[in-house]
């Protein structure tokens, strides 16, 4: 009989399993604390003081949001209230949201809450992707707010007969099968006017989240960085 070596000793492997699992778990928990601190929702103060947050305050709906190249980071980032020229937000330029640009923190939070609830209850994620996760039957909604389709040159405002992005979106959400763009249509989900407002706020807020440059080349059909 050969001499017993550690490598063929069950107890050795049992202990390795316990130690490695423990170590990986502790590291994960530690990283979770760090990540949570970085992705907690920001405050209105932050926006006013020009503090960039990965997930800004719901009052970001009062600002103009764009998605622009940051040379420093090498990819697009959400720009809130104007660009300082180097890919950092200025938090200056406002934008009307349903006729107002002075939504208070409380009001905006309530709107976002309604919108987030709506996104779950209406099951958006089982057709669309949000932040790239969900189903693949319909377009990604991560930056839907910034989609040229809804902008002044896109087709949706004319089709819904509205002249702002938020109203066009809200109208579409209430009667999606009335404004089809393709044979594959969004069904009527019984979304009320109030819920639609919340959902649009939710989408606008989501477009301001720093997603490390996902999706790449958004909306730059011709000027794609690597496009030929």
């Amino acid at each position: 009989m050969a001499k017993r070596s550690v490598w063929s000793d069950n107890r050795f492997w049992q202990r390795s399993a316990a130690w490695i699992t423990g170590f990986a778990s502790v590291l994960l928990i530690w990283l979770t604390f760090d990540t949570m601190a970085q992705i907690t929702i920001g405050t209105d103060e932050d926006l006013k003081n020009g503090v960039t947050k990965r997930v800004p305050s719901p009052t970001v709906i009062n600002y103009k949001i764009t998605y622009e190249m940051s040379t420093k980071r090498g990819h697009e980032v959400p720009i809130i209230g104007g660009n300082d020229g180097q890919g950092m937000s200025l938090f200056q330029e406002k934008e009307m949201f349903f006729g107002r640009d002075d939504w208070s923190e409380e009001e905006a939070t309530e709107l976002l809450h309604l919108g987030k609830l709506g996104s779950q209850v209406k099951n958006c994620m089982n057709c669309h992707t949000l932040l790239g996760n969900g189903a693949y039957y319909a377009p990604d909604l991560t930056k839907a707010w910034l989609d040229p389709q809804w902008g002044p040159n896109g087709s949706m405002q004319a089709m819904t007969g509205k002249n702002t992005k938020e109203e066009a979106m809200a109208e579409f959400l209430q009667n999606p099968s009335k404004y089809p763009t393709h044979a594959r249509m969004m069904p009527n989900l019984g979304i009320t006017a109030e819920e639609a407002k919340g959902l649009v706020a939710f989408l606008k807020h989501m477009s301001s989240i720093d997603t490390n440059g996902f999706p790449r080349n958004f909306g730059k059909i011709e000027g794609a960085v690597h496009g030929k």
Binding site: W13, T21, L27, Q38, R54, V55, L131, I209
Partner: peptide, 24 residues
């Protein structure tokens, strides 16, 4: 036991592959 070691050793932190683009 070896499989458990390898699976948990890679799989737990492998979760990072879902944290590339969700704001993290």
């Amino acid at each position: 036991w070896i499989e458990v070691t390898m699976l948990f050793g890679s799989g737990i932190l492998g979760m990072g592959h879902h944290y590339f683009w969700i704001g993290t």
